[in-house]
């Protein structure tokens, strides 16, 4: 059977917010992602787990095009974002990102961090933008600190402000890249609580995390990655209680034993 010529853009199911098709990524000659296939539907909370170097952060960064995939495709509502006339900056306004290192804009206070994208990228009116920013800051418990500069905040506060900044753009899906890994242990809880609330409110989320309890209790689906491939993609119940793959079991044994 012949495949369609490569020039024809792939089209997938428009119901999937994100669909990753045969994605590959190499740094130099080193393959970090190999033949990745997976999708995220509206309203899903998907956790990606795996040891360091398994490629999970790279996968997330590919989805937001902070890394350019070497092969394969990424579909947004069934349309390729790598081919054709898709505007990268347009696409990114629909796909929010929360970073491990927060990356709040250091030259702005918390409120302006939540305003700049709305006003300068989405073109919202300042009044409307301010209203939305305050609503989302309230949601993450940071409205009181709207006048503070990033350098005046704790790690947990910074991360909550960064989540509000991403939410203010009202994306269809929010990507979290190990959002609690850079935090002091006593601050992990406040950020996870915000993320739980967001998940419960129906936000579509894709979370790269080392927090197994969060992955288990909050996600609809858990993806286990190892050495650049998806080993297992299933419900948290199956992954944590009855993994089908030997590698998943070994990883979880090691992680859970440590705790």
């Amino acid at each position: 059977m012949n495949h369609a010529p490569a020039a024809t853009p792939l089209t997938g199911d428009a119901g999937n917010i994100i669909e990753v098709v045969h994605l590959g990524k190499t740094f130099g000659t080193n393959p970090v992602l190999r033949d990745i296939d997976f999708k995220v539907q509206k309203g899903e909370v998907v956790s990606i787990i795996g040891s360091s170097g398994s490629g999970k952060s790279t996968l997330l960064r590919c989805i937001n095009l902070l890394e350019t995939p070497t092969s394969g495709d990424i579909l947004h509502h069934g349309e390729s974002i790598l081919r054709g006339s898709h505007r990268v900056s347009d696409y990114r306004t629909h796909v929010g990102m929360v970073f491990q290192q927060f990356n709040l804009f250091n030259n702005m206070n918390v409120l302006d961090n939540c305003l700049v994208g709305q006003i300068r990228v989405l073109g919202r009116k300042p009044d409307e933008a301010r209203q939305k920013a305050l609503a989302y800051l309230e949601k993450v418990g940071m409205a009181q600190f709207m006048n503070a500069k990033p350098r005046q905040l704790s790690g947990g506060q910074k991360q909550r402000a960064a989540i509000a900044r991403a939410l203010a753009m009202e994306p269809e899906i929010l990507l979290f890249d190990e959002p609690t890994s850079a935090l002091d242990p006593e601050m992990v809880g406040e950020v996870l609580k915000v993320m739980r609330d967001l998940a419960n409110s129906g936000l579509t989320m894709l979370v790269v995390t080392h927090e197994m309890q969060f992955a288990r209790e909050v996600s609809n689906r858990v993806v286990f990655m190892d050495k650049g491939v998806i080993v297992e993609d299933d419900s948290p119940d199956v992954i944590f209680n009855a993994p089908r793959q030997e590698r998943t079991r070994i990883f979880l044994d090691r992680i859970l034993e440590r705790n």
Binding site: N64, L66, S89, D90, R92, T93, G96, M97, F99, Q101, F102, N103, L104, F105, N106, N107, V116, G117, R120, V121, L122, A162, R165, A166, M169
Partner: peptide
């Protein structure tokens, strides 16, 4: 300037010019 600042600006949809001017 830390690379994360550029990435965060790009992640909310800023192009090169906007990233430079505002961040």
């Amino acid at each position: 300037i830390d690379r994360g600042q550029t990435e965060a600006a790009q992640a909310i949809g800023m192009n090169h010019i906007k990233t430079m001017v505002y961040v």
